[in-house]
Computed example of a mutant assay.
Amino acid sequence: MTTHTIQHQETAARGVFHIQHEGRQVGEMTYSRTNPSLVVVDHTYVDPGLRGHGLAQQLQDAMVAWARKTNTKVVPVCSYVKLQFERNAAIRDVLA
């Protein structure tokens, strides 16, 4: 699995973690901010040609690290993110 650089952007009440590969965006995880310390993660996408290479997991790892650093709690509504929280008790500290 190649580790990619993940960018994070937040504008107003919307945020995104995204991965660029060869000059194009190939993955993203989006959220909505409901208050200063709570976000709802609503969508994860990875380019079909790159699925199965751990990109979604890298996005999740970046989001969890950011949530911990900023004391932000997460409500997962995206099916991928919900499943990862169910599978991995070590990241549940950021759940709302």
Rank of each mutant, 00 (worst) to 15 (best):
P48L: 10
L38T: 04
V39P: 04
S79Y: 07
K69E: 11
V40Q: 01
Q60E: 08
V39D: 00
V77T: 09
W66C: 02
D61A: 11
A62C: 04
T44Q: 02
E10M: 15
M63G: 01
I19P: 09
M29L: 15
K82Y: 03
Y80K: 07
E10R: 13
T34N: 06
V39H: 05
F17A: 05
A90R: 14
C78M: 11
S32Y: 13
L55C: 03
V64R: 04
G15C: 09
Q60R: 04
V75C: 10
M63H: 04
T72R: 04
F85H: 08
A67F: 10
T11S: 15
N88G: 05
G54W: 13
S32E: 11
L50R: 00
M29R: 06
R14G: 00
V41G: 00
L50W: 02
T5L: 15
Q25H: 04
T72D: 01
D61L: 14
V75R: 05
G54A: 10
A12S: 15
G23K: 10
E22L: 08
D61C: 03
H53W: 00
G54T: 02
V26N: 07
G52L: 08
E86M: 11
V46C: 13
H21R: 14
Q84R: 15
G52R: 05
G54K: 06
N88A: 06
